[in-house]
């Protein structure tokens, strides 16, 4: 019975009309083709220049450690792309429907608010996932020269997908709760900025206070929490634990990130659990609040159904 229910659900998702419509519309847009081409071109050019500078035109000079550097560099570029592009795509998914005056009609169909929100979530991240998948052949250059194995690439991609999902959830949250896409976009970028830059600054300040305060333990813990909730540091933590810390990044921002990871032991289980709790749990909570907000009485109906089911 459970298997049938799951099969039915999966079948519905495969045949989800909103998902098909959204994907069809997105892929028909000329901007999509342009964005995909531009992104591939930029990543390709960056990869080429990075390699060229490192080997001075002599491919045989490329060493496995250098390809690990290239991978680290590309992965940070991709994280930056995720943090910039995701709010732009996801912050208008519901408010845009409201502004185009298509939401009212959508809400009178039997599509549940949950299915609408999850479909919007999936379609928001699908474009970014496509970008990530498209760059895999570029990443495979690093496999050619050794130094990185596919499981390491997948681990970093996994972390980026969790981050992507969280940013999409935050953007959908603002898009559902605020009426205007303009405001939703501003708040989405502000939230992402707070997590990426705000937490880094807060961590840095806490570190400085800890160095001059008798209460070092508390401030050290605060800075550790700030860093462990920041995807930039957690990606460095993951890459450091995979053995990617490299001499090429000495004197750079990335090397300072890696040194913070080591000094705060961000590879610890506690750091990873707090990161995953916040990003996965927080995303789920935000999406549930969107479902509640999208159509009034959704949970009233569910509560009544549950009560009826219990009484039966």
């Amino acid at each position: 019975m459970l298997v049938d229910a799951i099969r039915h659900r999966l079948g519905w998702w495969m045949d989800n009309p909103l998902l098909r419509k959204e994907l069809r519309q997105r892929m028909r847009s000329g901007r999509t083709v342009l964005a995909l081409s531009l992104y591939l071109f930029i990543i390709g050019a960056v990869a080429f220049v990075f390699m060229y500078v490192n080997v001075q035109g002599q491919t045989l000079l490329l060493q496995p450690t250098r390809t690990a550097d290239l991978f680290t560099f590309l992965s940070y570029l991709q994280l930056a792309m995720i943090s910039f592009v995701t709010p732009g795509i996801a912050s208008g998914v519901i408010s845009g429907e409201r502004e185009r005056q298509t939401l009212t009609v959508l809400l009178t169909t039997p599509l549940s608010p949950a299915s609408i929100i999850f479909t919007k979530f999936v379609t928001s991240i699908s474009f970014l996932l496509l970008l990530i998948v498209m760059t895999l052949p570029l990443y495979s250059i690093v496999f050619l020269f050794g130094g990185v194995v596919p499981s390491q690439v997948l681990a970093v991609f996994g972390l980026q997908i969790v981050t992507l999902g969280a940013i999409a959830s935050v953007s959908i949250f603002w898009s559902t709760w605020l009426r205007r896409t303009g405001w939703s976009t501003v708040f989405s970028y502000a939230t992402v900025g707070a997590f990426f830059l705000g937490l880094a600054v807060a961590g840095y300040l806490s570190d400085n206070i800890a160095n001059h305060s008798p209460d070092q333990g508390v401030w050290g813990m605060v800075s550790g929490i700030c860093y462990s909730l920041n995807p930039i540091y957690m990606q460095a933590s993951l890459e450091a634990s995979l053995g990617f810390a490299s001499p090429v990044f000495h004197q750079s921002i990335v090397s300072s990130v890696f040194s913070v990871v080591q000094s705060h032991d961000l590879s610890s289980t506690e750091s990873w659990l707090s990161f995953l709790y916040l990003y996965l749990g927080g995303s789920a909570l935000l999406l549930v609040s969107c479902i509640w907000r999208l159509r009034p009485g959704t949970f009233t109906v569910l509560r009544k159904r549950l009560a009826r089911w219990i009484l039966r």
Binding site: P17, R20, K21, R100, Q101, V105, T109
Partner: peptide, 20 residues
């Protein structure tokens, strides 16, 4: 009410038909 961009009339009706 608004309509969706980049959808043909046939696809527009099919979308709502499938939703029901």
């Amino acid at each position: 009410f608004g309509v969706y961009d980049d959808l043909s009339v046939r696809e527009y009706l099919a979308f709502y038909g499938t939703a029901y």
